[in-house]
Computed example of a mutant assay.
Amino acid sequence: MNILVVSNNYPSLKNPSRGVFVYNLVQQFCKLGHKVSVISSENILTSKHKKVETYGEENCTVYRPKVVSASNIQIGPFNTYRVAELSQIKGIKATAKKHNLEFDFVYAHFMMNGISAVNALKNYNKPFFVAIGESDLIDLTKMYPENYFKQSIKHIGGFVAVSNKLKDQLIGFGIAKNRIFMKPNAVDLTKFYKRNKVEMRKKYKLPMHLKLVAFVGRFLTHKGPLRVLEAVENLNNVGALFMGNGPQEPIGSSVVFKESVPSYAIPELLSAADIFVLPTQREGSCNAIAEAIACGLPVVSSKIPEVMDQCHPSFSILVDPLDVKAIENAIDSILSDEERREEMSMNALEYAKNFEIGERASSILNFIEGAMK
């Protein structure tokens, strides 16, 4: 089949770590024998990042129309996100027309991209399917005029939700259960697996004498990079690896690595660490946790429903994500007990076998093919 993917959350040479989970999934679509085109809008006002040589093997044809963003600010009945949305719709339309794109269906990643895709491409009379991986859909609806949102989602033939929480929210919008496929996020186990720790530390020039904590994600308050840093700073002989970028930049003597890295480097850096820590306040289905488990890392994360669905006590400790002392104690309890740490690592590796991305990609496409009949 010819698949058109619409997602503004997709890696690039300027931002190699952005949307890696979307990238991994659509690469699997290609490996299953499908022809995939990706339209990934880029904000024209975004500051320039230093380019990397590659963000990984690319089997899709990727188009990157420029859009203008005015953030997400509510001014009376108007939300400034609508500026970006209208710009994105225009860019999607122009790209499809200019390149004479042929597709059997549209697969949009996240609801916002789905609504833009519908309003850009509905005249093509092709089916639309949307992956729902947001942490919450209720606040999202406030960004749109009510009737506009309701009319847009009527054009969507099916939804792939990563959690039961999101499935229930879709049902609350009036979506029939048979139009929703619940499938948690998964990992490419041919890329995410446990490497030799010493070799990976040598490769990335990381200290051999420290226990290392890994964080992967945007440097945002709700993700908690500064809470991780504060917890680590209170521990002896512990350093931290921060993979990502954002406004809450971790700075301090405990930071031994801090960089936005391409997808292929993440499993190598995870393998250099001893433990994964993510005190997130909200998630859809956390790719970073799934990837850390696949690399055999014990996990310290948040006692919230989304994470509790992903993490088993055999390899994780879940705490209040805002309680730095609890985060610190959880990290220390694992790092100070080598036998326990090794057991948790083996349990994580075994658990990861339940979440393989090739099976997930096949299941999603089977759902879509069934819905198109």
Rank of each mutant, 00 (worst) to 15 (best):
M1F: 12
N2K: 14
V6D: 03
Y10H: 02
S12W: 11
L13Y: 13
L13N: 13
R18I: 15
R18M: 15
G19W: 05
V20E: 09
V20H: 07
F21Q: 09
N24G: 06
Q27N: 14
Q27E: 15
Q28W: 15
F29L: 12
K31F: 08
K31R: 15
L32N: 07
S37V: 09
S40F: 07
L45I: 11
E53C: 13
Y55Q: 06
E58G: 00
T61I: 15
K66R: 15
V67D: 02
V68T: 10
A70D: 02
I75A: 03
I75F: 12
F78H: 02
L86D: 08
S87H: 08
Q88P: 00
I89N: 04
G91S: 12
G91T: 07
I92A: 05
I92R: 10
F103S: 05
D104R: 10
F105V: 05
F105W: 02
V106C: 05
H109E: 08
G114V: 02
I115V: 08
V118Y: 01
A120D: 04
N125D: 10
N125P: 00
P127E: 02
F129D: 00
A131W: 13
I132N: 02
G133W: 10
E134V: 07
E134S: 12
D136F: 07
K142H: 08
K142N: 11
Y144W: 08
P145L: 01
E146L: 09
N147T: 00
F149H: 01
K150V: 00
G157I: 01
G158V: 00
G158C: 01
V160F: 07
A161E: 02
N164P: 05
K167N: 07
L170I: 02
A176Q: 09
A176I: 06
R179N: 09
I180C: 02
A186I: 09
A186G: 10
D188G: 08
D188M: 10
K191Q: 13
F192E: 01
F192G: 00
K197A: 12
R201C: 06
L206T: 04
P207K: 09
P207A: 06
L212G: 07
A214Y: 03
V216P: 00
L220I: 15
T221S: 14
T221I: 13
R227S: 04
R227V: 03
L229W: 00
E230Y: 02
A231F: 11
A240T: 06
G246F: 10
Q248Y: 10
Q248K: 14
P250G: 06
S254Q: 13
F257V: 03
V261F: 04
A265I: 11
I266E: 01
I266P: 00
P267N: 04
E268R: 03
S271L: 05
V277K: 05
T280A: 12
G284C: 09
S285Y: 13
A288Y: 03
L297C: 03
I304E: 05
M308L: 15
D309I: 11
D309H: 11
S314Y: 09
S314A: 14
L318P: 01
P321Q: 08
L322H: 10
K325C: 02
N329C: 11
D332H: 15
S333A: 14
S333P: 05
I334N: 06
L335G: 10
R340T: 15
R341Y: 09
E342L: 15
S345N: 03
M346S: 14
N347Q: 11
L349P: 01
K353T: 12
I357R: 14
R360K: 14
E369A: 15
G370L: 14
A371I: 12
